[in-house]
């Protein structure tokens, strides 16, 4: 009898323990490491370099958050996730945030219980074909065999686009970018479809990039950005404002090189507030005053990150286009630091 009561008490205790969860910020600080979900390998966005160090456009966001929270841009555990496993990994707490070219959609935001904190790349879905096929438009792709990564918005857009244009295709489902590249190059599919930035990155890794063309059609809007779990708003705020700090830094001319110099105090109150010499913005986020400075110093401001990883001087050679600052005619815009 007593045993049953004891077991009952144990059950209740276990239940309470199971239901209560500590805040992500406390978890990260206690661990001393940020677990960041990234792509399994997409040159320019997230891939390990020759020394096994993760580099890329998305990786830079992880490093900036780690720097803001922990003060160390290398305190990141990169977890490579396939498009299929990423949401489960985030929801189960395996990673604290995702920076993995993930499209912001309503159903992911609402139904999958994700929280998108912003957009770091405005993209659109495109198609790549070998030049020798002589295809000039996506509408010519009737009957083509198309390699598409499973579990992506790409897969759904593809079905929509072909249905809207009343043409048919044969999908070849692939797990990750490396596999789709291999299938495409072996001729197992005629066309590769994914976000145009990823197509450019993939093409840059080919032996003969000039033998392949990216078709002009952009069949979807793909706003890619970092995301966190639904339900921990304080943590979402930190990731959101870290990204905004990088964007504002570009707008106000704060770079990795001059951040320390400007942190001594400037005549611009907004720069002072970002760098923590004025106001208590860091404290409001639960971080120290120099959080944004650390984030900017991690890999530079938004523009520096873009140019270093995917910009025109790199083999991927993406132009800023929509991803220029709003002041330069792009869509990248940060709410004010106030």
């Amino acid at each position: 009898m007593k045993k049953t009561v004891f077991l009952g008490a144990l059950t209740v205790a276990g239940l309470v323990a199971g239901a209560a969860a500590a805040s992500t910020l406390d978890d990260v600080k206690a661990r001393g490491k940020l677990n960041c979900g990234v792509s399994t390998g997409l040159v320019g966005f997230a891939s390990p370099d020759a020394n096994g160090r993760w580099e890329g456009y998305d990786v830079a966001v992880c490093r900036a958050v780690a720097a803001a929270v922990l003060g160390d841009k290398d305190a990141v555990e990169f977890v490579p996730l396939s498009s299929k496993t990423r949401f489960t990994a985030l929801n189960s707490g395996e990673v604290d945030m995702l920076a993995r070219n993930t499209t912001w959609t309503l159903s992911r935001d609402v139904d999958l219980k994700m929280e998108f904190v912003g957009v770091n790349y405005y993209d659109g879905q495109g198609f790549m074909v070998p030049k020798s096929l002589g295809v000039t438009s996506a509408k010519d792709l009737d009957g083509a065999t198309i390699c598409v990564q499973v579990g992506t918005t790409t897969e759904l857009n593809l079905a929509d686009y072909f249905r809207a244009n009343n043409i048919s295709y044969e999908p070849v489902p692939v797990e990750n970018n490396a596999e789709s590249q291999q299938q495409y190059l072996s001729g197992a599919c005629d066309t590769l479809t994914t976000d145009r930035s990823a197509l450019a990155a993939t093409r840059a890794a080919f032996e003969k990039p000039d033998d392949h063309v990216v078709l002009p059609e952009i069949v979807s809007k793909e706003p890619l950005g970092p995301l966190v779990r639904h339900g921990d708003n304080a943590w979402g705020d930190i990731v959101r404002w870290t990204l905004n700090a990088l964007i504002s830094a570009e707008e106000f001319g704060i770079t990795a090189a001059n951040a320390d110099e400007l942190a001594k105090g400037t005549g611009n109150p907004e720069i002072n507030r970002i760098l923590g010499t004025e106001g208590t913005l860091g404290e409001m986020l639960g971080l120290d005053a120099g959080w944004a400075k650390a984030a900017i110093k991690a890999s530079g401001n938004f523009g520096e990150i873009f140019e270093a990883n995917v910009g025109e001087s790199t083999p991927i050679g993406l132009s800023r286009g929509l991803n220029a600052l709003w002041t330069d005619g792009g869509l990248i815009y940060s709410p004010p630091f106030r």
Partner: peptide, 18 residues
């Protein structure tokens, strides 16, 4: 890349619906 039930129900469906 064979679409068996693990790839449809346990793969794409699970991923798209969460």
């Amino acid at each position: 890349g064979y679409m068996d039930i693990t790839s449809t129900l346990g793969g794409v469906t699970m991923n798209q619906t969460g």
